[in-house]
Amino acid sequence: MQRIVIDVLGDLGGAVIDGLGRLGRAALFFGRVLGVSHRVLRRFGQVTREMRASGVRSVLIIVVSGLFVGMVLAVQGHDVLQRFGASDSLGVLVALSLVRELGPVVTALLFAGRAGSAIAAEIGLMRATDQLSAMEMMAVDPVARIVGPRFYGAVFSMPLLAAMFSVLGVFGAWLIGVRLIGIDAGSFWSQMQATVDFRHDVLNGLLKSVVFGVAVGLIAVFEGFHAAPTAGGVSSATTRTVVISSLAVLFLDFVMTTWMFRG
């Protein structure tokens, strides 16, 4: 019995120490990535390539998801609002939900699954097949050449994708609310415009998605870069990327929401 307790405590302590060590290494790695920013951004063609790989190829899933989330919000929101005779506020409800929360968060979660995992797998595989070592031996820093462009590709893509998600969501809500249910188009838009504030809601939402872009991008390149050079190592790097970035996005969202929308 005593032994079991010691075992459990030992496992717990080991996990915590392991986790803290990882966090520290991730922070150092973040510093390294930021340190080569000027070199990465000067050769923007590299970043453009990665934006196509992660951003452009995520457009379809973002657009479709945004549309459906918006339509579902409209159906559910209308169901609740009409009990209070407030169907006209549907636009407000949908727009605020999307712009403040669902746009940035769902986009980040989808992006982690669609692009983050791919980035981690790609870099992990390059590690496993010595491509990163080969690059180092050619006097080329893989952090500047491989990691940096992918990181910035994610950072730049995320807010653009989140904006698309929100717009398609509003469009979906308009389709259901105005075209199907028959809410007055005028009050749908005017109430939305009267309530949604550019700086407080729209800009804060975009700021959130930039932070999520940094988080997901960093986790993906970190996990890929430090993957064990085996098939198992690459697969666990991919899984970890999706799991850790999803948790990080939700946690950061909570922190930022309490900070931004407390009032």
Partner: peptide, 9 residues
């Protein structure tokens, strides 16, 4: 020259 060539795929 690396074991498997390490070409950029």
């Amino acid at each position: 020259l690396f074991q498997q060539g390490a070409l950029f795929t």
